[in-house]
């Protein structure tokens, strides 16, 4: 498997931004990086960090201010629109506003770079379209009109379109925005699978930090002060880059899980005994209330989760809601 990770895109001293009459507006400078086939790479960063600008530059929608982008060992600027259409496929974040077009027709548009003057599809084109549709698991939507689809379904159709385009590289701008959590996971897993099975270079921007950190082979962190930093999610976690990029009040990076956690200000303390999920849940619920709960907490309130019910200072309660209620009352009494 190792051999298939081939460098498809190389970025050298890239400066992204917008050109205007009054002078260039630089968004991000000095990006040196590469993307590899068979890998899913996520671009992470806060709003306004320059994610979209970078993506637009890499897809040639926007010219770079300086530096070079090499795609399949040829400069991006040397590609014509028609040639590039066979190398890079995009899925955009804008909601597609098309009526009276079936899923099959839309996926078929992905074959446009290959069809002739009249846009007639060959037997092979039809086969690729069908294969793309089944790879994304939307065979049941084949004859549905686009306007009747949900946001998640539309996103999958557009992914199928980029598959039909048969490009080695797929760029996606926030493909998981506007989706519910299960759909987000589904899309991410789908993209990961495509990268592995079809040996595609998949590069996407997203705000779904947790998901990206769990599923991405490589992460590009981007923001204004630090520029771009690249690595596996694990390396970036260990060397502290992750917490550097997303430092905010109330958020901490948890080294144990490699994920971000909301950090609660704690101003109370109880003694909590036990193990397992029930212990963890009680601990979590109390943390939300700003109460520190651990075996070394203050002994005037003692909670035991090891029995069948929750035991608090000798009283038995059946749910965490009741438990919280009781803790509140006890704390109030102790303070007075």
């Amino acid at each position: 498997m190792k051999g298939q990770y081939k460098e498809t895109i190389r970025v050298d001293n890239l400066v992204t931004g917008y050109r205007s009459k009054k002078g260039d507006i630089v968004i991000t400078r000095d990006i040196n990086a590469a993307l590899y086939s068979g890998e899913l790479t996520c671009l992470l960063g806060p709003n306004g960090a320059g994610k979209s600008t970078l993506l637009k530059t890499l897809t040639a929608f926007l010219p770079p201010i300086a530096g070079s982008i090499t795609v399949e060992s040829k400069l991006l600027s040397e590609y014509t629109d028609a040639k590039l259409a066979k190398v890079i496929g995009v899925v955009l974040t804008e909601r597609l506003n098309i009526n009276n077009m079936t899923v099959k027709e839309l996926v078929g548009m992905g074959r446009s770079p290959y069809t002739g003057f009249w846009g007639r599809m060959s037997e092979y084109d039809r086969m690729v379209v069908n294969e793309s549709i089944s790879l994304v698991n939307i065979g049941n939507l084949r004859d549905r009109m686009i306007q009747t689809l949900s946001d998640g379904e539309r996103q999958k159709v557009m992914i199928a379109k980029s598959l039909a385009q048969e490009t080695p590289v797929i760029f996606l701008d926030e493909p998981t925005a506007f989706l519910d959590y299960p759909s987000k996971v589904e899309i991410m897993q789908l993209l990961q699978r495509l990268a592995r099975e079809k040996n595609k270079t998949v590069f996407l921007s997203t705000h779904d930090l947790e998901l990206a950190l769990q599923i991405a082979d490589r992460v590009w962190l981007i923001d204004k002060p630090h520029g771009v930093t690249i690595g596996t999610p694990e390396d970036l976690a260990l060397n502290g880059d992750m917490s550097r990029y997303f430092r905010r009040d109330g958020v901490i990076f948890d080294m144990e899980s490699g994920l971000f956690k909301i950090c609660h200000e704690l101003n109370g303390s109880v003694c909590l005994n036990g193990t397992g999920p029930r212990f963890n849940m009680v601990r979590k619920a109390l943390a939300r209330r700003g109460i520190y709960a651990a075996p070394d907490g203050r002994k005037d309130i003692t909670i035991d989760t090891s029995g069948e019910n929750y035991n608090i200072n000798g009283h038995s309660v059946t749910s965490i809601a009741q438990l919280l209620d009781r803790v509140d009352r006890l704390l109030l009494k102790n303070n007075v």
Binding site: F61, A85, V90, L96, Q165
Partner: peptide, 11 residues
Amino acid sequence: LLGDSYARNLG
């Protein structure tokens, strides 16, 4: 019909 960006990406 697909909009400028998608159309351009399709060559």
